[in-house]
Write a protein that binds this DNA or RNA. Structure first.
Length: 756
DNA sequence: ATAAGCGACTCAGAAATCTCTTG
DNA sequence: TCAAGAGATTTCTGAGTCGCTTA
């Protein structure tokens, strides 16, 4: 619900979406909501310059066509159009492809290299120059001697950049300077961080030229239970075969979890468990209800207690061992640089935990063995060795992909990968590119919005559907909504897969006209609930789409994500449905920051504003979390603290008063000084109190909203960095260490005047 | 030619673990 | 001073998106 949608109170704070949480008692909140609501509107209208009118006009004008119904655009037409489009596409794709690649190739780095690169919003992509470089650059890039240069900056790519660097050197230097003179550097910045964002990118579709790694770390082998830990069936002790026992322990470990109470989970588990049993066991164990896992469960609990109770030394030992593993397996060498791997451990066997009503929950996730593993690395690298006596399934050398290791998982038959950490060049470049695409959307979003408004009146049903869907995606930040195989996954939907049962239409609701109520399960079975007033034409179209349909029929029966994305691709190079989410999220953050941040505020208050801006985005994107179990208690604790602080404050004030009185009488230096001290004390306490109160507000507002996802995946980090610089907030207050690593590129390049 | 399915990658919240605070 | 517990961070792996290939 970006801006315009939410005019009703409850909708705004997601009160409707997030059940009870926000009470809106405080003014901040209201303010926030308002902002949220109107901001977008404003912005859109503003930017649209002049099309603000089209709502009305469009509504009034072409009412005529409203009548057409489903049958409309005959299939023939449909197809013809399609064909045409196809052709176009093909033509495009010839030169188009090349173009695209190139553009991606340097999209921003190039900008950087321009002398005025200080201005990041600078007109981008003056391609030609760069392009040449990219091209020759490629040919030039050879695997080379890897070992030595983990730290090097002087591979060829870097060298290339040198000239440019000079122009910008002051900036770079400053940056380094800051880091350098902090003690930090000595501590843990032994070498300069590699600034991949100052280098050229590949433009030939390859992801790397050299890749070397040690392969995955396998799950530890199963350790049979000690003989005193018994399993009972129907009250009688029964010794399980190792295979059956292992699977039993998976269940035992989850005994306290709600999963094990669910029928589907139990059914799936039991079925798969039986497959691991010996014939004897199979014959005997026929009813899960008669299985008693409690001793196993207790045993594991005891173990975890024991782990907690370990001595410091033991803990250190484990830590050291983990560190060793990390050092050995946690890094790879990609194109002359040592890079962190995200998940170098293979997923251990266990019971599948789907989200929501997943039909496969409880199934056995089998153990992955070396012969299941595909290794990807350079030909000329030292290949990872499989454990003694085993073989990899395959070793390949595909530099068109980014993964190091893959295997096929047995529940859904999907492929799992080991890839690099978000701080790596390969992830970072992509991330950066994502935001650049969103910024390109910013430039043409008005045009696109106008177009879909026009399309609401189209003769063709499929175009109307496409236009309405796009409106939802844009306005509500819905996901695209691919179709899913029924029965294979939980029943969740996105925009294109919405069904009639997921929306309700209210010609009039709470004093608003044309209200649409959404209620469906989205990704991860998170409920999306929202009541939104929409434009009349949209409303009418929805009525049309719903005519003569059953609740479980598709709302947009002539639309799917591939059709939609093809259309979007025509509107803008690289545009897909998800770009709207990124764009709307980032632009909302930027606007909110502008509106909420007040120069007079102190640092904690500014950070509260930041969090609120972040929160607005999280609400827009429907990022929810289960309220922490300890939420109420922790709120109470905070309140207690606040009360205590208030007490302290009034004491301090009293002290101050008497000190003042004292000073008046005495008129000596000493008592004056006391007054000063007391004054300071009062001030300090006031500040502390304020901080606590801010904290309380923040926490309350955040009860069931998850900020992390948007922060990590949707918000252009340069917006945040610029905000920090503008207001003198240390970036550490906004991004923790990991986040700073991921966003190093943004931290390095964004200045305080960065505009998304 | 089209739909289905595959592959590769991003994004998602919960759970596990670590760290810091506080009583 | 230290243990507990809260809060922050990290890990984990499931669930999407989207382009491409194949039947």
């Amino acid at each position: 619900m970006s801006g315009d949608h939410s005019h009703s109170e409850d909708q705004v704070d997601g009160g409707s979406r997030f059940n009870d949480s926000h009470k809106h008692k405080d003014k901040y909140k209201e303010k926030e909501h308002k902002h949220k609501d109107h901001k977008k509107d404003k912005e859109r209208d503003k930017s649209k310059h002049g099309n603000s009118d089209h709502k009305d006009s469009s509504d009034k004008k072409h009412r005529d066509k409203e009548k057409m119904k489903h049958k409309d655009g005959s299939t023939d037409k449909y197809k013809d159009k399609h064909k045409e489009k196809r052709k176009e596409e093909k033509m495009k794709s010839f030169d188009g492809k090349v173009k695209k690649e190139k553009e991606n190739g340097f999209a921003s780095p190039h900008v950087k290299s321009e002398p005025e690169d200080d201005i990041y919003h600078s007109p981008k992509h003056e391609k030609s120059l760069k392009r040449e470089r990219d091209d020759d650059n490629d040919s030039e890039f050879k695997p080379k001697k890897i070992k030595t240069e983990i730290k090097t900056e002087n591979d060829k790519r870097a060298k290339k950049r040198k000239p440019d660097e000079d122009t910008k050197s002051k900036k770079t230097k400053n940056k380094k300077g800051e880091v350098a003179d902090g003690k930090k550097k000595a501590k843990k910045e032994p070498e300069e961080k590699w600034k991949w964002w100052e280098e050229e990118r590949y433009t030939d579709g390859s992801k790397w030229k050299f890749l070397e790694h040690k392969g995955p770390v396998f799950a530890p082998p199963y350790e049979p239970l000690p003989s005193n830990v018994k399993f009972y069936y129907d009250g009688k002790h029964m010794k399980l075969s190792p295979g059956a026992e292992e699977v039993a322990t998976f269940f035992a470990k989850m005994l306290d979890h709600e999963y094990t109470t669910k029928d589907i989970f139990r059914k799936n588990f039991f079925k798969d468990w039986r497959k691991e049993m010996t014939a004897e066991e199979k014959a005997k164990l026929t009813d899960l209800k008669k299985c008693d896992f409690s001793e196993m469960s207790d045993y594991f609990k005891a173990q975890s207690e024991a782990r907690k109770a370990m001595t410091k030394d033991e803990k250190l030992k484990i830590k050291a061992e983990n560190e060793r593993l990390l050092q050995e397996y946690g890094f790879c060498i990609m194109d002359n640089h040592k890079e962190r791997i995200a998940n170098f451990r293979i997923e251990p066997p266990g019971l599948f935990r789907g989200r929501g009503d997943h039909p496969k929950m409880g199934m056995l996730k089998r153990r992955i063995r070396p012969q299941d593993i595909i290794i990807n690395c350079s030909k000329d690298s030292e290949h990872p060795k499989p454990p003694p006596g085993t073989k990899w399934k395959e070793v390949r050398h595909d530099n068109k992909v980014t993964w190091l290791v893959s295997w096929t998982e047995n529940i859904q038959g999907s492929i799992k990968y080991i890839m690099l950490n978000p701080s790596s060049r390969i992830k970072g470049e992509k991330d950066w590119q994502k935001y650049e695409t969103a910024r390109r959307l910013k430039k043409c979003v008005d045009r696109i919005r106008n177009q879909y408004r026009e399309d609401w009146k189209s003769k063709e049903m499929r175009i109307r559907q496409r236009a309405v869907a796009l409106y939802f995606i844009d306005k509500l930040a819905l996901r695209a909504g691919n179709e899913k195989e029924e029965g294979e996954t939980a029943d969740t939907v996105g925009c294109c897969s919405l069904r009639v049962e997921h929306i309700k239409l209210y010609p009039e609701n709470d004093g608003q006209e044309y209200v649409v109520e959404f209620d469906f399960l989205g990704k991860d079975s998170i409920r999306y609930y929202n009541k939104v007033p929409v434009e009349k034409r949209v409303f009418k179209n929805l009525q049309l789409f719903m005519e003569n349909k059953e609740p479980d029929d598709d709302l947009f029966d002539r639309l799917n994500t591939s059709v939609l994305n093809k259309h979007l691709q025509e509107l803008m190079d690289g545009l897909t449905a998800k770009v709207f989410r990124t764009y709307n999220a980032s632009i909302t953050l930027q606007q909110q920051l502008k509106e909420l941040t007040s120069g007079e505020d102190n640092v904690p208050a500014k950070i509260l504003s930041y969090n609120r801006a972040n929160r607005a985005v999280a609400i827009l994107c429907n990022h929810q979390r289960a309220p922490p179990k300890t939420f109420e208690k922790s709120m109470q604790n905070l309140q207690t603290k606040i009360d205590a602080k208030r007490g302290q404050l009034s004491d301090a004030k009293r002290d101050l008063k008497s000190a003042k009185a004292d000073a008046k009488i005495r008129r000596d230096e000493k008592s004056k000084k006391t007054v000063e001290t007391k004054k300071k004390a009062v001030q300090r306490i006031e500040e502390q109190l304020m901080k606590l109160e801010v904290q309380a507000t923040d926490r309350e507002e955040n009860k069931q909203i998850a900020l992390g996802t948007s922060k990590l995946n949707y918000l252009d980090p340069r917006i945040s960095v610029a905000w920090c610089k503008k207001w003198g907030i240390p970036v550490e207050k906004i991004y923790n260490k990991t986040q700073r690593e991921k966003f190093a590129w943004a931290i390095d390049m964004a200045e305080d005047d960065y505009e998304f």
